[in-house]
Amino acid sequence: MIELESVGRRFEGAGSVAALQGVDLVIRDGDYLAVTGPSGAGKSTMLNILGLLDRPSEGRYLFDGIDTDRLGERERTGLRGTAIGFVFQSFHLLAERTVLDNVLLAFLYGGLPRRERLDRAHDALARVGLSKRASFLPPTLSGGERQRVAIARAVGTAPRVLLADEPTGNLDEGNSRAVLDLFDEFNAAGQTIVTITHDPAVAARARRRVRVREGRLTVVADAQASKGLALHPGLPVIPAAPVVADEGTPA
């Protein structure tokens, strides 16, 4: 479970800019949350904080009850490697390495024997339907395939949460749909997903949505009401039981 308590992030520069302020948010295991908002509203700042790439300037960020601000650089790095999976808009695959090597990158320094890492990487590629592309180089793949490789890399380590930053931003409609279908599938299997997007169609696939505007979080009422998930421990909580999705169900 991920909890943000009154989280704020200021950037000191020519005058102090509050990119985020007073954000309260609870993400339960199995949740599928979309963070929407116009560019520059603070979405990426929030993702960086959630992904332990950045520290809040105020408030607390609890990861499974652990105050992440108390963790040292090394522990945060370790947590990032084992508990968080990233999917980026621009894929961030290493062009000179094979698809398999790119997926294996997520297992580096995790202490698993090579054999097991290979097995898991192949499993992950199978889950995104790219087993046959294992020995290809990323530049020979389509955009959609590349993003699926990135997703395989992100989910291969079985992270507690998958953080996706505009995952379909560089994809055409068909490939976008394929990626979002994968997310649905993974979520249905229990994977916690947080996706950041300015695209309403992408946000619509999530079970619930929050909006960031000028650094503040607002709840998108319909999602909260219909899915019955708490945004804050103070709000009434209805257990996050599997919900029959009313939109975006895989075809």
């Binding site: 992904g51 790095t77 370790g78 961030h92 290493l94 580096l108 320094y109 890399r153």
Partner: peptide, 16 residues
């Protein structure tokens, strides 16, 4: 730089 950033994000410590 991007590769290094990616490695850091994927959990590679600075020392490594």
């Amino acid at each position: 730089r991007a590769e290094i950033g990616l490695r850091r994000a994927l959990g590679t410590p600075r020392s490594l």
